[in-house]
Design a protein around this nucleic acid. Structure first.
Lengths: 177, 177
DNA sequence: ACACGATACCTCGACACCGAGGTATACCGG
DNA sequence: CCGGTATACCTCGGTGTCGAGGTATCGTGT
């Protein structure tokens, strides 16, 4: 979701819409480009909710730039969202990527670890894309190279992420004692 | 997108809405659950577009079941979509998963290979989530364990998928000669 | 002097999707 | 025979997103 990413980028420093657009394009653009028609209404929503304010810089640039600053409420909203992500933020890879990108803002190793553990739990559940009744069908059951490859690739990517999660959790636990 | 998945499942055999719901839940449910409020309107859209027909089976079950059958136009629509997926079907992992799940329906090794090559090309582009100007920033540049891990995990998952793509393309090329 | 592309912002209609709610039947256990 | 659960379908309001279009200024090249 755009909201999370916008808050995340603005937490570092104020940006105007165009800069924000470039940051967002870098973060998720190659996967799923965001259009102006999504970005500007999203900014307006955040402004209406009091999470950010615009400050118009007159002169310098082509059109009058609106520099966007997070308010206190905006900073709190980001931290709350990072501390307790929605279920979809954990399970959907695209959204999870966004959460991880800004997780360092959550300046508390224990809270960060709690979020990583939720992802760990999600990835540890036995899951397949295809079932026979209730039983998940494994890659080896498919002769179809596509479904077979899908499951094998999914398994490999899950293992890679689990490895990182376990290592990072161990690091974080050293910090909390 | 729902449309692709619905067409894909119905290509195998007619199903009624409730069975379709279970198949969809298995395919993408753990990542992103689909609600009735998405499914039934989607079925209606496909029916309105002439891609499927309902046949009401009276009696047997609780509520009158509407068994859904793909029409000729529906079968063509699926094959067209699989033969030439939209850019987002290639780049967005969730949608790509759906494409791969049904790629075997495209009963032509050359066309299947062409689709896999598009994904191969996409994954081969140098990409990062974070940039310094135009230069992609690598995992090693981050001390932040989260962004670092994000990039390292992405690299590992990309390599895993590339390996599968190259192997499968080689197999498919043997079939076409 | 002028065209053009990059910068910068915005609106609008269309549409997919979600969540919450509603309806109704069949079947099983107590 | 009564209640709960599973089956099966549907509607509706709200929201987020997209794509196409519009406006205006600045800098660069010619």
């Amino acid at each position: 979701m755009l909201k999370l990413a916008i808050l995340g980028f603005l937490y570092d420093r104020p940006l105007h819409g165009y800069e924000l657009r470039r940051h967002l394009a870098a973060l998720t653009g190659h996967i799923r480009p965001i259009s102006d028609g999504s970005l500007y209404p999203a900014i307006k929503r955040l402004e209406a909710d009091g999470l950010l304010v615009r400050e118009t810089e007159p002169g310098s640039a082509a059109a009058p730039r609106h520099t966007l600053h997070l308010t206190g409420a905006g900073r709190t909203a980001l931290l709350d969202r990072l501390r307790e992500p929605e279920p979809l933020d954990i399970s959907d890879g695209n959204r999870w990527t966004t959460v991880v990108s800004f997780l360092r803002h959550l300046d508390d190793p224990a809270a960060q670890a709690a979020v990583l553990r939720r992802r760990l739990a999600f990835l540890s559940e036995p899951a397949s894309f295809f079932y026979e009744g209730d039983r998940p069908r494994t890659a080896e059951e498919f002769t179809d190279p596509f479904r077979r490859g899908l499951l094998l690739t999914a398994r490999a990517t899950t293992e890679a992420e689990l490895g990182w999660l376990r290592a990072t959790l161990a690091e974080l636990e050293l910090l909390t004692g």
